[in-house]
Design a protein around this nucleic acid. Structure first.
Length: 596
RNA sequence: GCGCCUGUAGCUCAGCGGAUUAGAGCAUCUGACUACGGAUCAGAGGGUCGGGAGUUCGAAUCUCUCCAGGCGCGCCA
């Protein structure tokens, strides 16, 4: 309904201008005073939109707000464009102007949308967007900690892509740094073959070795020295070290890819090591910009407006006392590269980081330094998209029973398994028989959809309570509920309803139909909002609401048994609902089913 | 100690660039299956929006303050 909104806003703006220009207030020239404050109606009884603009003008014009509203309405009803779109406006409460769209304009919009493959969502003026998400660490397995970043990042990427932007999905994997020194020196002792031969040991062992190496590193001085030597060797480009590093990365990569394939996530790996050649230049840049200071032997940039424990400005270390670089340096190199024009950069207009909320301060610092170093173009945006931790049902950080971090692949398998158990039970209860391949497909789709949807449907800022039982529930704001609405529509088609039938004119009368129509037409606003605010839970909320309204319509209004033109009109609503749900779920990274 | 985030129905959460009577879902209770898949729908109860103050004609929403919880706070990432 964005186009209608835009038209109405113009009408209202005009009406306010005209209504108030008749008043003898010359000193009120500020245009902002004439903001009609057109918003969606806060309740369905109030119609489709409400203009609140009369209220704040009351004081300025020394008139009761209702009287101002009346003056505006007088102007409005003389406007032909307005009268075609809306019923006669009503003034309510303190001076709200309530607007109700004519059925004709709603029907017209539906007709347009039925023919539009993009379901009313316009293509935006394309910009380059970098989305940094997922970002697991080499030589470690993906765990719950990567779940939210991966799912939220992917969904945001899908939405921005659909809006027509050029999206670069970057996997900023932890593939560099001191941990490799540790790991390589440990492997030399316990499994040297892993350093020379591909896939000599499995990923689980690698993870175990990593943990052991870390322990030894913390306890054993000699081992620590050895590890530091290995890091230096690696960073100096020693051939054997590099080869070992390559092997380890490749092995992890294969493991990550299995998960990305399962979740249908596309992402380009560009790990921390990519930025190695740029690190020295970063220090030089900061030096030239006069931002660099040496403190306790380390090269730092002191943040302005952020103080540490001692009340002094907080430093960000960009080069350690031993000359090594750390993650801040890498992140600075990354941000510079992303905003730098192609081909020596990504030429991004918007850079989005999807990481846990705990890193908020870190990114604030990075963004500040990048801004002061003038690496971010004035017209560009840089955003940290934070999210809370995944908690168990006890409200504490999610752990396995033995207190270990939950592996992502276990978590996903577990959800799929539960979906399968549910399905098999239901088949027994309903005396249905289905093939094994059907059962596999449905439980995989439902199991993964449940995990993704549960995560996305929550406001990402707050912590999120993980519960298989809730996410797989067939009722409530869950993936299975949404998928079921689609299955019902598919059922109508199977029973002989031609969803593409358009021989007849669209004709709607039932309140349930109009409610559904109004909801369907909101899709474009929601997508716009998510593009702007990067909150996928808004889209989830919308899809859930749409499913509920559809289910009421389906329950209360006969479709196949109705006579034309109602039958085909209702089938059209089914089609548009199905298309909207499918597209919406697709933008969340969730595939749909015809039967379940 | 400082900083960031969170606090809305029994539970899980929407709403938060102010606006007409604060919304869902789950759970609880009551109804509806000769129906297009009841995996649904109709309805009921349940709230001083953490406390207090302020700005405003109007605050869950903005400001300040206090309380509670989570996370972070210099050479790990």
């Amino acid at each position: 309904m964005l186009s209608i909104y835009k038209n109405l806003k113009e009408c209202l703006h005009d009406a306010f201008q005209k209504a108030l220009s008749e008043q003898e207030i010359s000193h009120v020239a500020s245009k902002s005073l004439f903001d009609p404050q057109l918003v969606n109606a806060s309740r369905p009884e109030f119609g489709d939109f409400q203009a609140n603009g009369a209220l704040p003008l009351a004081k300025e014009f020394k008139l009761p707000p209702r009287q101002i509203a009346e003056l505006v309405v007088e102007q409005l009803i003389q406007n032909q464009i307005f009268s075609e779109l809306c019923e006669k406006p009503e003034i309510a409460g303190a001076g709200f102007i309530n607007l109700r769209l004519k059925k004709k304009s709603l029907t017209k919009e539906i007709k347009v949308r039925l023919k539009d493959k993009r379901l009313g969502i316009p293509k935006a003026k394309s910009i380059s967007v970098v989305i940094d998400f997922s970002s697991p660490n080499i030589a470690k397995e993906m765990h719950v900690g990567h779940l939210r970043s991966t799912i939220i990042g992917d969904s945001l990427a899908r939405i921005l892509e659909f809006r027509g932007h050029k999206v670069i999905r970057l996997n900023h994997v932890g593939d560099w740094g001191t941990q490799f020194g540790m790991l390589i020196s440990y492997l030399k002792l316990v499994a040297p073959e892993a350093l020379t031969k591909a896939n000599a040991i499995n990923i689980g062992d690698l993870v175990a070795f990593y943990k052991e190496a870390k322990q030894r590193f913390d306890l054993d001085d000699d081992f620590q020295k050895q590890s530091r030597k290995e890091v230096v060797k690696l960073q100096n480009g020693d051939k054997d070290s590099l080869k070992a590093w390559e092997l380890l990365c490749n092995q992890s990569r294969q493991e990550f890819q299995k998960i990305y394939n399962l979740l249908d996530i596309k992402i380009i790996e560009r790990g921390e090591s990519f930025y190695n050649p740029y690190l020295k230049e970063i220090i030089k840049d900061l030096q030239n910009a006069g931002l660099l200071e040496i403190d306790e032997g380390a090269k730092c940039v002191f943040l302005s407006g952020v103080t540490g424990k001692d009340g002094k400005a907080l430093p960000v270390i960009v080069q350690k006392g031993d000359g090594g670089f750390n993650y801040s340096t890498t992140d600075l190199a990354a941000i510079k590269y992303r905003f730098s024009p192609t081909p020596s950069g990504d030429g991004a207009n918007r850079v989005i980081y999807v990481t846990d909320a705990g890193q908020a301060n870190h990114f604030k610092g990075i963004f500040q330094i990048a801004t002061r170093a003038k690496w971010i173009p004035k017209t560009a945006r840089v955003e940290h998209v934070p999210f809370g931790v995944v908690q168990g049902e006890d409200g504490k950080k999610l752990k396995t029973r033995s207190g270990e971090t939950v592996r992502l692949s276990d978590l996903l398998d577990s959800s799929i398994q539960r979906a399968e158990d549910d399905l098999r039970q239901r088949l027994i209860d309903e005396k249905r028989e289905e093939s094994e391949s059907f059962i596999k497909e449905v439980s995989t789709t439902v199991g993964l959809a449940a995990v993704k949807y549960a995560d996305l449907s929550q406001n990402r800022i707050s912590n999120y309570q993980f519960s298989y039982k809730k996410m797989l529930a067939l009722q409530g704001n869950t993936a299975p509920y949404l998928l079921y609405a689609l299955v019902r529509i598919a059922g109508i088609a199977r029973k002989g309803g031609d969803l593409n039938e358009s021989r007849h004119e669209l004709e709607f009368n039932e309140p349930q139909e109009l409610k559904l129509i109004r909801e369907l037409l909101k899709f474009d606003e929601i997508i716009n909002e998510v593009e702007e605010e990067l909150l996928p839970n808004r889209l989830c909320g919308y899809l859930f609401e749409l499913s509920q309204i559809f289910n009421r319509f389906y329950d209360q209004v006969p479709i196949l048994k109705a006579k034309n033109p109602y039958r085909s009109s209702r089938l059209s609503l089914c089609k548009l609902t199905a298309d909207t749900l499918k597209l919406g779920l697709h933008l969340l990274g969730i595939p749909t089913l015809a039967r379940m």
